[in-house]
Design a protein around this nucleic acid. Structure first.
Lengths: 144, 144
DNA sequence: ACAATAATCTCGTTGGGCGAGAGAATAGTC
DNA sequence: GACTATTCTCTCGCCCAACGAGATTATTGT
């Protein structure tokens, strides 16, 4: 029970961290979420189109266009026609976005990893199982 | 490292869960966050004023007034002049808000507790330590 | 060729949040 | 005990992200 409040508190802290970072760099919470999504996809080698991005962020097409416009204006991404299917537009992540992602996550990740150093392998495995179990519960609950 | 992605994934799931719930009940993400804050305060027996609420949610006074107006219009809270200091307004949580909070958290909490049943006391203690450590890191990082 | 479908973008509107400042109550000072 | 300073809340006008509806361009199927 206490654990649940801890969990919620942690998500709140992470949220605040994210939105404060976003504010300092002149982008909105949505922009940051989009950036994270794009960087994840880029790392996984997946192609992202405005349609997919909007779907992931639960935006309609108009909102998605506006979002992509903003990110492009900030020089974080680039639109590129898909040569195979020329209806599609590929969203290509610019180097600047990688740097920004690094600035956002880099320091925090280093600190988190350092904090994990105070746990032994068995404990980390337990934490991993725990997080997996919680994630699964929430994901299941999300589909009613 | 994998743990960090898990952590982020979990917060994303929780966020989505929250915003989808909010949408279904005709309130905005900010409204839900405010509701959570108010319910927490009510449970702790603390008095919340518009000023404090706005500060917690990082809203300016105009935005806070709007937020309180919405919550009041929805019948979730009630404004009440503080008899001691009549500049202040107390935000009193209505029963409806409690019910809504219950509907929001109730089911999810039950599921989470059930999932925790698959861990023994030592493992839960480890998870608790882990979450505490992570929360502390993020909270510290938030003050640069 | 010609509809039907898919992907993206444009237009007009709505509404949450911001900045500035007004109004009401309390606290401090001479 | 009046008078300024401070605190708390609210009002007004504006901006812009997101929405709904529909237009535009490209592709696929018959």
């Amino acid at each position: 029970m206490q654990l649940i409040h801890l969990l919620r508190g942690l998500t709140v802290e992470l949220d605040l961290f994210g939105s404060e970072f976003a504010g300092r760099h002149g982008l909105h919470p949505t922009d940051l979420r989009a950036l994270i999504h794009l960087l994840d996809a880029a790392r996984a080698g997946a192609v992202v189109t405005p349609g997919r991005l909007g779907e992931a962020l639960r935006l309609n097409s108009a909102g998605t266009t506006g979002l992509v416009d903003r990110l492009e204006r900030l020089g974080l991404i680039r639109r590129e026609r898909d040569p195979g299917d020329r209806r599609k537009v590929r969203l290509v992540v610019e180097e600047r976005a990688m740097d920004l992602g690094q600035a956002f996550f880099g320091g925090l990740i280093a600190d988190l990893v350092a904090a994990m150093g105070r746990f032994d392998a068995a404990e980390l495995a337990t934490a991993r199982r725990f997080l997996l179990a919680m994630t699964e519960v929430v994901a299941t609950a999300r589909e009613e």
